[in-house]
């Protein structure tokens, strides 16, 4: 019965990495650098999105209802809004004027006496927060909302939101271009590193072939070597990214308090999984390309 031991292949891969450390360590550092560059672009993208949401520039329109409208009229307006195209009905939110006042009171709690001047009068209006599905149909939606009797004001920040959406698209484009270029760079480095490891063991490979080793038996330690390079780079890049990001967050927090920074905890899992996927991809593809001729033979 055949019994190929996984420990043999992993052991050979680790020995190969150590033997070839002059090339494998720089490759790990190059991969680490590339991953941090891609990760940084992603974090910029996420932060723009985070700031859009916190500034209320999410894909939503706020309509205010005439203060004279009865509860029945307010509900009827809500039903008409829900019936419109391009409205994300599931997330449509009604905010009563009492809720709006309570929210404002919370927001300005430190100036508690400020609201006392109102002497029980609530100057705010009932409102609906209307999330929409696509940017393309927003103008039509705004027009349709204007036609609904009882709506006295429509708040939308289409221009600003549009500009920020454009910025996001730009960053996303740069991110994708970065990724493509850096994947090529990483694969190139891994192909060369594994190629050198193969050269260092050329005599051993010749012997293996004469003895009757299959292509997979010869190639597997090198493929594992590539995978280890990818995974180690990913993990190191994750910690480096965390350190750099938190350092920048502290700096921004002190000097540019107008910018809200997205907490790293919100994106750390995506960063780790993304890095691992990219590292594994580069490791597997790079080592496969290096070992192609042995896998065929």
């Amino acid at each position: 019965m055949k019994s190929y031991r996984p420990a043999y292949f992993i052991g050979e891969a680790l020995k190969g990495l150590w033997r070839n450390k002059r090339y494998s360590i720089p490759t790990i550092l190059v991969l680490l650098g590339c991953l941090v560059l891609v990760g940084s672009s992603y974090l910029i993208y996420e932060n723009v999105d985070y700031n859009m949401n916190s500034l209320g520039l999410a894909k939503e329109i706020v309509v205010f209802i005439d203060s004279e409208a009865t509860d029945e009229e307010v509900s009827a307006i809500g039903e008409r809004i829900a019936a419109l195209d391009n409205v994300d009905v599931a997330n449509l939110v009604y905010i009563s004027k009492e809720e709006a006042l309570a929210e404002e009171a919370d927001k300005y709690a430190e100036y508690g006496d400020l609201l006392e001047v109102l002497e029980g009068d609530n100057p705010l209006r009932d409102s609906y927060v209307i999330p929409y599905l696509t940017n393309e149909g927003v103008s039509t939606l705004v027009y349709q909302l204007n036609q609904i009797e009882g709506i006295v004001k429509i708040n939308n920040r289409l221009d600003l939101a549009g500009n920020i959406e454009n910025l996001k698209s730009g960053i996303l484009f740069v991110l994708i271009v970065y990724m493509v270029i850096l994947v090529f760079v990483c694969v190139f480095f891994i192909v060369n590193t594994i190629g050198l490891a193969v050269m260092a063991r050329a005599d051993e490979i010749v012997i293996m072939r004469y003895i009757g080793a299959t292509g997979w038996f010869i190639a597997l330690p090198f493929i594992i070597e590539g995978i280890i390079i990818g995974v180690v780079s990913s993990i190191l890049a994750y910690f480096a990214q965390s350190f750099i990001y938190n350092y920048i967050v502290v700096a921004i927090g002190g000097n540019f308090s107008i910018i809200n920074t997205c907490p790293y905890e919100l994106v750390q899992n995506e960063i780790l999984l993304g890095f691992l996927a990219a590292g594994l991809f580069c490791g597997v593809v790079g080592s496969f390309l290096s070992m192609k001729k042995y896998l065929k033979a």
Partner: peptide, 17 residues
């Protein structure tokens, strides 16, 4: 490779590890 397993090769330069 499976065919070569039926052959034992001995070389002038030994080819040892």
């Amino acid at each position: 490779p499976y065919y070569r397993r039926g052959l034992g090769m001995v070389f002038q330069d030994f080819k040892l590890l």
